[in-house]
């Protein structure tokens, strides 16, 4: 048996340039995020900001943050941003894109923001074919207000406002807004992704890149739904929450492209 060399490892040796195997994109601020351990938001922030850096468009993009857990997205993403009122991100983004049509524009919204209080703004922006990207995080629960039912909460799923499980007779049905938007002619790229495994993170990143490439071609509304988790409000460990995505969320919200422009 060959001998394993002893290497003194400390902070200084790790951060030597030759030892660096990974660094976050410059488009992310080097600041601790407020998200709970295991939450998918930070992963989506990172891959999206990587895409922005890789495309070299960090000076040509304007984002809109929502109300919800990702309300402080503008503290993490190092690009010009506006904070919208709850649900109004697609209207705010419309205002931005209409006066700055040569810039990339995106919104980053949760299920409550995009699919409940903001439904009218979301659907009409999509139907007008507004040429911006919506990153829609679906974790089937209201995170920031600590665990109430979301429009996307699954049947029988327990939340603080569906303590006996979501009953469609009382609470209505889980809302597949992405499927609905895919029917609209103004929406040109509609896809559902997740970040619960490494392979899915890679696929989601590709989808985000594709959306911005489509935006560059001025084709119309782009929607990337990301099925995500909420360990805190699902009352699960991070690992259990990833298993819940796989076993409960994905059968109801299947992954894949719902609509891709021809020839892309």
């Amino acid at each position: 048996m060959s001998e394993i060399p002893t290497i003194e490892i400390n902070k200084e040796t790790i951060i030597k340039p030759e030892n660096l195997v990974y660094k976050p994109p410059k488009t992310l601020f080097d600041t601790p995020m407020h998200y709970c351990p295991g939450c998918g938001h930070s992963t989506v922030h990172k891959i999206f900001m990587e895409v922005v850096e890789e495309m070299g468009i960090e000076n040509d993009i304007i984002g809109v943050a929502p109300v919800g857990c990702s309300v402080f997205a503008y503290y993490y993403m190092n690009v010009d941003m506006q904070e919208a009122a709850h649900g109004r991100a697609c209207a705010v983004a419309t205002g931005i894109k209409r006066v700055l049509p040569d810039k990339f524009v995106f919104t980053y919204q949760g299920d409550g923001d995009f699919a409940a209080i903001g439904t009218a703004e979301s659907i009409h922006a999509a139907n007008r074919g507004e040429n911006f990207l919506v990153i829609f995080i679906n974790n089937a629960v209201y995170g920031m207000t600590s665990g109430q039912m979301a429009p996307t909460t699954l049947y029988d799923m327990v939340s603080t406002t569906t303590p006996y499980g979501r009953d469609p007779k009382i609470h209505g049905h889980p809302f597949k807004i992405t499927d609905l938007i895919a029917q609209l002619p103004g929406a040109v790229y509609v896809t559902r992704q997740s970040v619960h495994t490494t392979a899915n993170v890679r696929k989601a990143k590709k989808a985000l890149r594709k959306a911005l490439e489509i935006q560059k071609l001025n084709l119309g509304f782009q929607l990337v739904e990301i099925v995500s988790n909420c360990p805190s409000n699902w009352r699960m460990t991070p690992l259990e929450s990833l298993k819940f995505i796989e076993e409960q969320m994905l059968p109801f919200y299947p992954l894949g492209d719902l609509k891709v422009p021809e020839g892309i």
Binding site: A85, R88, A91, V92, G95, I96, R98, V99, A120, H124
Partner: peptide
């Protein structure tokens, strides 16, 4: 001038927010 009929007054005033935030006269 961009002239857009919004889906509602809620939509309109938030479009104003977005465009005003870009330094435009709205």
């Amino acid at each position: 001038m961009v002239v857009l009929q919004a889906e509602s007054e809620l939509g309109a005033i938030n479009m104003i927010y977005g465009a005003a935030g870009c330094g435009k006269r709205v």
